[in-house]
Computed example of a mutant assay.
Amino acid sequence: MAGNACREAWLADPASADAEMNIGPDTVDLHELTDYEQDFVRAVQQHLDDFLKVHRLIMPIRRKHTHSA
């Protein structure tokens, strides 16, 4: 996907300003990755939700043992 843009960038004149370092959507179209990006975000959200559920279950037990010692 980015191979053509990398090749073209290699052949192009070097950037002379920081603003030229950014690669815009006119150079590399990443719309093909939208579904993967959404799947990733959903997976991370599910992981964090599961983590927080476990954390909420464990923390009261840890606090109880910490304060009783």
Rank of each mutant, 00 (worst) to 15 (best):
H47Q: 13
P60C: 02
E8G: 00
T27G: 00
I23Y: 06
V44L: 09
A12R: 13
D49N: 09
F51V: 05
D13S: 11
D50M: 03
H67G: 00
V41T: 07
L33N: 03
R56Q: 14
P25M: 06
D13Q: 12
H55M: 12
D49L: 09
D35E: 13
F40K: 10
V41A: 03
A5C: 12
V44K: 09
L48R: 02
A69T: 05
D26L: 06
R56H: 10
A69I: 05
L52Y: 15
P14C: 01
D29H: 01
A69G: 06
T27Q: 15
H31C: 03
A19H: 07
V54C: 12
L30M: 10
S68N: 08
H65N: 07
D39K: 12
A5P: 00
A69C: 05
T66K: 15
D18Q: 12
D29P: 00
R7H: 08
L11F: 10
A19Q: 11
N4L: 06
S68V: 04
R7E: 12
T66C: 04
I61D: 07
P25E: 13
D49T: 07
L11H: 11
D49H: 09
H55T: 05
D13N: 09
A69R: 12
M21Y: 11
Y36M: 10
D49S: 10
H65D: 02
P60L: 02
